[in-house]
Design a binder for these strands. Sequence first.
DNA 1: TATTAAAAAAGAATAATTCTCATTTAAGAA
DNA 2: TTCTTAAATGAGAATTATTCTTTTTTAATA
Lengths: 117, 117
Amino acid sequence: MNITIEDIRNKLIEKGLKITPQRISILQAVYVLNNHPTADNIIEYIREAHSNIATGTVYKVLDTLVENQLIRKVKTDRDIMRYDGIMEKHHHLYCSTCDLIEDYIDEELDNILSEYL
Amino acid sequence: MNITIEDIRNKLIEKGLKITPQRISILQAVYVLNNHPTADNIIEYIREAHSNIATGTVYKVLDTLVENQLIRKVKTDRDIMRYDGIMEKHHHLYCSTCDLIEDYIDEELDNILSEYL
DNA sequence: TATTAAAAAAGAATAATTCTCATTTAAGAA
DNA sequence: TTCTTAAATGAGAATTATTCTTTTTTAATA
């Protein structure tokens, strides 16, 4: 979770994406708001930090980041899309009552599955 | 897939639900439109069969059916909810490009998973 | 057949997301 | 450094799946 602005810039550069303050803020927000934030969580977080941002931009940038495999979409029972900055293979434990998502990493399970399939 | 109206009535009765033409049509539509239909698919199908139905009713009935475990909600990459009338344990193979969902039944896999967890 | 709680109709309201288009900006070229 | 331009952003309207509200209808029981 110790990701610097420089790390974020590099991630964007690796993908051949233009470096913009909006993209940096949004990617940083996904990392900081670590419980699988919604677009709205991200907008709120960025606006608190005194920079304005258009909602359309947030959705656009999130799509770009998903396309470039810097983040992932996470769907839940509610019809709000959520985002995940952790790209290493993992599962989610989801509580549909409180809408909480917990990361679940289990290499043994992954091995069993990949051997079987 | 040979489910009669009588079967559907019985399913509703088992759950203690009032028998209404709308509920019968909707449950039937979920069975007939077997590739995990959306609420809209169901509305279209029912209206083709010459009976009108309010969209609100379809959503309400679908919720009732889900609550009573007669059908299941299926989430995909798109933000449209889809419904599944097959209640036996199964997985889904999903193509995010064409949005097609295929049922995947594999008891051996299920056993491996339930033994592991 | 009468009663009544539940269900449905109709359509307005909501809210997440997308779209449009004018403006701005990042990044490479000169 | 300044210029150029394709790409990105801002602003807010538009879209669309879903929910909500209110009135009317109906299924099930007495």
